[in-house]
Amino acid sequence: MLDEKNDKYERIYKTSRDITVRSKRVIFTLHRIPGVTEEVKESLMSSAANELRDIEQTLMKHIAMELRDEDPHQFVYAYTSGIQEYIEALSFHYFLMTGTIISHNDAQKKVTFGNGKEDHADVVPLSVLLQPKEYILGIADLTGELMRFCIKCVSTGDFDKCYKICDILKTMHGGFLSLGYIPAKELYHKMMVFKSSLHKVEEACYSLQLRKSEVPAEMLSDVFAMYDADENHAHFM
């Protein structure tokens, strides 16, 4: 009995590590987006989507099978890090597609299997329990990724996106504030990291605004032909 449980724990843990690695890969893929052409962007997005689907269909499903007829809370610690990283990748992809944050329900649906028609074998729906805590921790990690993405957008000249991310991050900061004090060490730590990345983004938007005001002063003559020039100028910032 005990050995069986330990083996199961071990197997889930291993799968969870694979999920972490592959989710990280998805995130790196998405980070390549700023500065590339529209077609490359499309292909990056779709390859990220495929990879995510693959993670769901193989690794997540594997965990779900292991968890069948078990109390998932017993094994939560085995897969918590993997699922957090997965939520991070999933929500990052979702954000780039829609510009908003994925809801807990939608995320849970992603890791619930067996409702689909193709799964005749599974009578009981399989699912990986996604606790609200894991969800929120994943979202907290997302803020760091958004910060990096935003900084990268500055360096490639996609200013609109940069302002947009800044606004989203501020709204998220408000959201985290509304939670009040949470007696969870992990989240507290992540909040600190989030605050510093929010700071960085705000600073970046601020200096962007300053630089923007410089440009017209330098070349007042063709203010209206500026848009293209602005793009080029951005590479030297």
């Binding site: 302002y163 606004d167 501020k170 408000g174 009040g180 705000e202």
Partner: peptide, 14 residues
């Protein structure tokens, strides 16, 4: 108090 802080946080938005 947290509700008020959350509302006040909005002043930083554009």
């Amino acid at each position: 108090s947290y509700a008020i802080s959350t509302t006040l946080e909005k002043i930083h938005n554009t």
